[in-house]
Nucleic acid binder design. Structure first.
Length: 564
DNA sequence: TCCAGGACTTGTTCCTATAGCG
DNA sequence: CGCTATAGGAACAAGTCCTGGA
């Protein structure tokens, strides 16, 4: 019997746990210096580096075949941080272009190759050792239950790989020591031991937070945490709450939509901007768009931080009226490009907001996310901008499933319908992916397979005909058996063909769409569980092991008739 | 009221284990 | 049974939103 935490009473306000015991985080392995015969060359001459300098150089050397090392910002940032080397070294090494890391690069490539070519026994041994580590450090005790930790290893030192045009890419992400780490656990628990010769920065006992350990990272100065895994009570409960708030929005959304439409006409510019922004967030599932510190991160935006340069207005386009063209970089510098017809009042308002503004000016200059969220809080308790994304994603899945699922369909057909519904959500949320590098190849492989199967079927059909003819002429038991087996073979092959064809369709449609993110973060799992039960589809066709684990609460509490 | 820091969720990328193939 | 494409999972970056202190 699974621990049904969702049937237990919750703690008083703000208290996350009563007992917490763990072993602390696992630190990155120490740097292993290069063998003597692996040389670094500066300006064509060998130059031996101090261990610390060599370590940082190795981070760069390992990445030599990565696009990052061709980017100026990355190279410059790396070079600045690398040159915090010994004085003697700094005197010599003044130009990155004169640095030759290729021997180091080749050495590490070889190491990787070795790793790949390990024997079964070696691999098994490594696996067992890793399992031991997980058993020791990968779990904690929280309130009488052994729970999995999501990330018990401290991030190793490396060069920072910011996404998009990140101004800090290439900077050295420093090695974290116990002296940097704050431990959080309960007073009456066994306090984790720091590695020998070391001390923790601090040990605290704060049961209003969920983290077990934290440290401050040196790139942005933000705090990083060791937290529980997604299948833990703590995370599961939060997830459940998230979907319950989204379901609550279902009962308020019509009124909220009436209100913001009303507000399109407000005398106050602030109110109009808020209304139009909310319209976008609701209709297009845009993110809130917090303000960001300039120069600290890549230049990306969300709804409230959109600038004039990010939209174009077309009174008429391709036969449609009042079209807005969005083109901006969102989270992770993923491009959002969309042409959407909008209500006339929205269009007119946008024209108004853009009057006398430059490309780089804020579209919603009287609005920011705290202002928007404060307003939303008034409309419904617990409502924030991101709830609309959850709500619209989940409700879309439910609608699409209802629309697409056909009771006449085979199981693979139903799964295709599910994936299509999932896809509709991923498109809404702009969860794109680059088409896999081998996409065309694997697609044509699949097509070839389909053709082969078709060929086989028609051949077997011919053979069946022949066999039937022979039976007519000569009624032997043996021949009758042949006929039967041919029939069966055809049936089997046809089923396989159908499966392959469904697979091909699914893959083609999924070329540029990533389903995972929405499945894990936006779709109320109870919708999927109910659908699987209703249509007799195994849950494992929809969720893999990790996902089933994470959504265990939904599996246990959901009936066929669940409605989001 | 404003802002910075803090806590937690969401998102992509990269590596690896494994399923499915011949 | 070995090979390879792919799914799964770890890692970690990048968002959202809240809080507490000036």
């Amino acid at each position: 019997m699974r621990w049904r935490w969702w049937e237990e009473e919750k703690y008083e306000d703000g208290i996350k746990w009563k007992f917490l015991e763990h072993k602390g985080p696992v630190f990155a392995p120490p740097y292993i210096p290069l063998p003597k015969d692996i040389k670094f060359y500066y300006d064509g001459k060998t130059l031996s580096l101090s261990p610390q300098t060599e370590e940082v150089a190795s981070f760069f050397a390992k990445m030599l075949d990565h696009e990052y090392t061709t980017k100026d910002i990355f190279r410059n940032n790396f070079f600045i941080d690398w040159r915090k080397m010994t004085l003697e070294e700094r005197m010599v090494i003044t130009d990155l272009a004169k640095c030759d890391f290729t021997e180091m690069f080749t050495y590490y490539k070889g190491k990787m190759e070795e790793k790949k070519n390990r024997t079964k026994e070696e691999k098994l041994k490594l696996k067992e050792e890793n399992e031991k580590l997980v058993q020791e450090f990968g779990f904690c005790i929280m309130d009488h239950h052994r729970e999995k930790i999501g990330n018990f290893k401290i991030e190793p030192p490396d060069l920072f790989r910011g996404r998009g045009d990140h101004p800090k890419q290439g900077m050295l992400k420093k090695r974290i020591l116990p002296e940097d780490v704050i431990i959080n656990c309960s007073k009456d628990s066994k306090i984790p031991e720091p590695p020998s010769g070391h001390k923790w920065k601090e040990v605290r006992h704060d049961n209003t937070v969920t983290w077990l350990a934290s440290w401050t990272e040196n790139i942005k100065g933000s705090v990083k945490y060791i937290m529980l895994g997604a299948n833990s009570k703590l995370k599961g409960e939060k997830d459940w709450e998230k979907y319950e708030i989204a379901r609550k929005l279902k009962n308020h959304v019509e009124k909220i939509r009436r209100t913001y439409r009303e507000n399109f006409k407000s005398k106050e510019m602030k109110v109009r901007q808020r209304a139009v922004a909310l319209y976008f967030i609701d209709k297009l599932a845009l993110r809130a768009g917090n303000e960001k510190e300039e120069g600290e991160t890549a230049d990306t935006v969300g709804c409230c931080s959109l600038r004039v340069e990010h939209i174009k207005l077309y009174p008429e386009l391709d036969g449609q009226k009042y079209v807005v063209e969005f083109d901006f970089l969102g989270k992770d510098s993923i491009r959002y490009y969309n042409k959407v017809p909008v209500e006339k009042k929205v269009f007119k308002n946008l024209q108004l907001f853009m009057e006398n503004k430059q490309e780089g000016d804020d579209l919603f200059d009287r609005l920011n996310t705290p202002l928007l969220n404060k307003h939303l809080q008034l409309l419904m308790e617990g409502l924030t901008a991101k709830v609309f994304r959850t709500y619209n994603a989940s409700i879309t899945l439910q609608q699409q499933l209802a629309e697409l699922t056909d009771s006449d369909d085979s199981i693979p057909g139903r799964i295709l319908s599910y994936n299509r519904a999932n896809r509709a959500v991923a498109v809404l949320c702009n969860h794109q992916r680059a088409p896999p590098k081998t996409f065309e190849q694997s697609m044509s492989n699949l097509k070839a397979k389909i053709d082969a199967r078709k060929e086989q079927i028609s051949l077997t059909k011919k053979e069946l005909k022949e066999a039937k003819k022979e039976v007519k002429e000569n009624e032997s038991e043996k021949l009758k058996k042949v006929v039967e087996s041919k029939k069966k073979a055809i049936l089997r092959a046809e089923e396989q063909l159908m499966k392959l064809e469904v697979q091909a369709t699914d893959r083609e449609e999924n070329k540029q769409i990533a389903l995972g993110t929405s499945k894990i973060n936006y779709l109320d799992p109870r919708i999927s569980v109910a659908w699987c039960k209703k249509w007799n589809v195994g849950l494992e066709k929809i969720y893999n092991k990790t996902q089933r684990d994470k959504f265990a609460w939904a599996v246990d509490m959901t009936d066929t008739d669940f409605v989001f």
